[in-house]
Design a protein around this nucleic acid. Structure first.
Length: 815
RNA sequence: GCCGAAGUGGCGGAACGGUAGACGCGCUAGGUUCAGGAUCUAGUGUCCAUUAGGGUGUGGGGGUUCGAAUCCCCCCUUCGGCACCA
């Protein structure tokens, strides 16, 4: 029995329990249906769900429900990215253990997710801070160590003084920490790295296959990998037997090199420069990127092509980390070198003339000319194009053993050591006699001790725990020490989507058959902020795990949807700005169906969503309107019959509503299929309900048609407002869950209008609109257009030069 | 600086070369209601016009086309990403 009042709280609780008890959304790998893996980026259990989560997860939930009704076997799991700094900070502040804090948060947030009406297969829940998950982080680490993909090295790394830990390059945003914005420092430390650069080429090449991803994200990844082809060339250093190796992509400008620049921390500086005064001045070079500065080292290099002797400068803009840490400087054709040469009065020599430029005098130049062109002043290469010269000069260099062709990447190896407690212990042991030894597989997991003391005063908390640190060497049995750093939490999230496929596997990290069945993720949904971070690491991990032989997937995410931010008063919602909207409050006030409808209706998913309290009222009103329509017609609705009457037997009034219903099925379906544009899908539903009201008011309706209309409307709204749909579904006398139903299909014949509005234009301007029967041929449409009184007046006897007819829509008369 | 996206009523947004502004919010008027709220109905880009109707209009300027919010070129603004990568 349908109640008059729409009581969201009551029906939502009822159906949420029903779906869970009846396991409506449980998956069955042998169902004989096509699979669909729908996944949203799992949350960090920070304490409460925020509107950004709601938006993200509602999108995934709608897709899950829709795809299920379309006949797919949909895997839709959820879990917790549960290791991380906030747990430690909370522990220090509130004197709770990070574990306690985390699990309390998970419990609360899980309740919130359920109240939103999200349907997950909770049997597959993954929690990364549990030993049954992180042991496999350790297992992968060891496998990677064995394959040379995990290694330790001392180097300058990004250090966040606020978080008191190291950050990978990807985790530094505008010189600041990705988490707290604190300006990062460079610190020299021994750190573990994953050799992601070994996969640079494949990550770049396979980026071309990601056609289900936003182009923007793919471009960001390509740029981050930053491949460039060039040559390494050795320059002899005059008066010594040493050489400087440089990297250039512009070997066509070799004849224009008038000096050399090397990084101030380049090893040759310390090796060759004797003068303490010069060394001091090099050391004192500023790091300000705006001002180019250098110091003449006093020694000279020999250009291997010209035999010319050129001065070598230590320069502040040369990076030791990229290429070879030394560059040949061609001021005429490189803006940085140009500025440098001007400042220190070094000769500028033009060796490339771009197209359409005749002669350039070096002294007239105001900036470098970096374009390709025809070589001049370049010996036997003069007259060649830059492209030809690049090949010929590279050949010469290789033939004469002066250097070789190389490919360089901007991508750096992924530093994964973190000097923190709440993460996966790195499973390595340091033995005085055996050196670095990995923990044997059967001893995993290396469990995180629960009794660590967190003071927040620097250095790895594990380092102070003798019980943890002291161990035996697995090789020789002697006294040894454990590694005390933990792993970057981005390691945890780099393979959780694989774990969902076989979450209970306990003898190996993944069940190959299960993973191969479900992977790749068919639709992944999350924020754009992970464009390079998580999404690049996950691609890397997938390829490594494939190479280990556990899975056969090359790419983890087939389609990616990056949803926009939730904005209020023109700013991103955040606690610090005080403009947050609390999902709990809204759900209590309106019910989750209203919140869901608003989030989906206010903007297409990829765009930012401007929050509007009034807009939420509108969504609520819409649901009440559907409810009231069903209630007001409840006597008619419970009649037998499926409403699919022969079109020709119906009155005009009835057949128009039937047509509108079929048109709505088409429009809602197409809106979802076209990049999940739920906003226009919901708009189409609102239109249908508005029309239904109008038809109902205008006269009696055939009960079968009315029932058909409302039944389709319920099916169409069910992914968006599932609780209202389920309640109304039962109220109209249907049996079983609406989510076990097939998604409706429209009949093109019924949807077709039998009368169309013909627009008549004169010179492209609308001059008349007339109703004509559908399906008329072009000639008849023309006749109708010319027969129109207004058109005759406008043409005024002038002969038409041309008449364009757009089938079934428009006639444009050109006079 | 380089790369990319976006710019449409008072607001959120529709319109994948063919009637610009669907749908929603807001606003106006009316019905219902003791009143408020809720709800239903109608109207709502802008200018001129009593009406009929007409002009104009998608950041600005050009172009292609019978026809441009949509395609091309230049410029402006906003937002993102990268930024001495040799």
């Amino acid at each position: 029995m349908l109640e008059e009042r729409y009581d969201a709280e009551k029906i939502e609780k009822k159906w949420q329990e029903h779906w869970e008890d009846q396991k409506i959304f449980a998956v069955n790998e042998d169902a004989g249906q096509p699979k669909f893996y729908c996944l949203e980026m799992f949350p960090y259990p920070s304490g409460r769900i925020h509107m950004g989560h709601v938006r993200n997860y509602v999108i995934g939930d709608v897709i899950t429900r829709y795809k299920k009704m379309k006949g797919f076997n949909v895997l839709h799991p959820m879990g917790w990215d549960a290791f991380g700094m906030p747990a430690e900070n909370a522990a220090i502040k509130n004197k709770v253990h990070p574990s306690k804090w985390t699990f309390v948060n998970i419990e609360y947030m899980k309740g919130q997710l359920k109240k939103i009406g999200l349907v997950y297969d909770w049997d597959r829940e993954v929690t990364t801070c549990k030993p049954d998950y992180y042991r496999w982080n350790q297992w992968f680490f060891i496998k990677m160590y064995e394959r040379g993909l995990a290694y330790k090295k001392r180097s300058f790394v990004n250090w966040c003084p606020e978080c008191e830990t190291v950050l990978a390059n990807e985790q530094v945003i505008d010189d600041g920490c990705w988490r707290c914005d604190t300006v990062v420092e460079q610190k020299e430390l021994d750190q573990w790295f994953y050799r992601i650069t070994d996969y640079a080429e494949e990550l770049l090449k396979d980026a071309d296959t990601l056609d289900g991803w936003p182009e923007k994200v793919v471009t960001m990844q390509r740029n981050w990998i930053g491949r460039s082809e060039g040559v390494e060339v050795d320059f002899d250093i005059e008066g010594t037997d040493k050489k400087i190796k440089i990297f250039t992509t512009r070997q066509d400008t070799l004849f224009g090199a008038t000096f050399m620049s090397i990084a101030k921390i380049h090893p040759l500086v310390a090796e060759l420069v004797q003068d303490q005064d010069v060394l001091k001045r090099i050391e004192a070079l500023s790091d300000d990127p705006e001002e180019k500065e250098g110091v003449d080292t006093g020694f000279h290099a020999i250009n291997p092509l010209t035999g010319e002797s050129i001065p070598v400068y230590a320069a502040n803009f040369v990076l030791m980390e990229y290429g070879t840490g030394a560059v040949m400087a061609v001021p005429a054709h490189d803006q940085r070198d140009f500025e440098f040469a001007k400042k220190y009065d070094i000769p500028i020599r033009v060796v490339v003339l771009p197209k359409d430029v005749k002669i350039v005098k070096a002294e007239d130049m105001e900036c470098a000319n970096e374009e390709y062109g025809i070589l001049v002043n370049s010996g036997e290469y003069s007259g060649l194009s830059s492209n030809d010269a690049k090949e010929k000069i590279a050949d010469y260099i290789e033939n004469k053993n002066l250097g070789k062709r190389v490919v360089n990447y901007k991508l750096r190896d992924w530093g994964i050591s973190r000097q923190r407690y709440w993460g996966t212990p790195i499973p390595m042991i340091y033995c005085e006699s055996c050196g670095i030894v990995s923990v044997p597989e059967e001893q995993l997991p290396v469990e995180l001790p629960m009794d660590a003391v967190l003071t927040g005063t620097g250095s790895s908390p594990l380092a102070g725990m003798d019980d943890f640190v002291k161990t035996k060497c697995p090789k020789c049995g002697g006294e040894a020490k454990r590694e005390t750093d933990t792993m970057d939490t981005f390691v945890d999230s780099s393979w959780y989507f694989l774990r969902y496929c076989s979450p209970k596997s306990d003898d190996k990290p993944l069940d190959t058959a299960a993973v191969d069945h479900w992977m790749p993720v068919d639709q992944y949904i999350g924020g754009i902020e992970h464009a390079v971070l998580h999404l690049l690491y996950s691609r890397f991990f997938t390829k490594v795990i494939r190479d280990i032989g556990l899975i056969s997937t090359d790419e983890p995410f087939k389609r990616l949807l990056t949803q926009g931010m939730v904005i209020k008063d023109g700013m991103k919602m955040s606690k610090s700005k005080g403009n947050v909207v609390d999902p709990d409050f809204l759900i209590n006030k309106y019910g989750t169906d209203t919140v869901r409808i608003f989030c989906l209706f206010a903007a297409p998913p990829e765009r930012d969503l401007e929050w509007s309290d009034k807009g939420v009222d509108g969504a609520y009103r819409f649901l009440k309107r559907i409810w009231a329509f069903a209630y007001n017609n409840k006597n008619l609705l419970n009649k037998e019959g499926n409403g699919d009457k022969d079109h020709s037997e119906l009155s005009d009034h009835d057949s128009q509503l039937l047509r509108k219903t079929h048109q709505s099925i088409k429009k809602v379906t197409n809106s979802i299929e076209r990049d999940y544009h739920f906003n226009t899908a919901i708009a189409a539903l609102m239109e249908l309900i508005n029309e239904a009201y109008a038809f109902r008011q205008a006269g009696d309706l055939d009960p079968d048609v009315l029932r058909f209309c409302i039944k389709q409307a319920i099916l169409l709204i069910s992914p968006f407002a599932p609780h209202v749909a389920e309640e109304l579904w039962r109220a109209i006398g249907e049996v079983g869950s609406v989510f076990n139903e097939k998604w409706p299909v429209w009949d093109e014949d019924i949807a077709k209008e039998d009368e169309i509005q013909l627009v008549v234009q004169i010179n492209g301007k609308v001059r008349a609109k007339l109703m004509v029967p559908a399906g008329l041929d072009d000639e008849t449409l023309k006749e109708k257009a010319f027969a129109e009184q207004k058109i005759r007046e406008q043409i005024n006897g002038k002969p038409p030069r041309k008449v364009i007819v757009v089938k079934g829509r428009l006639v444009n008369i050109v006079v």
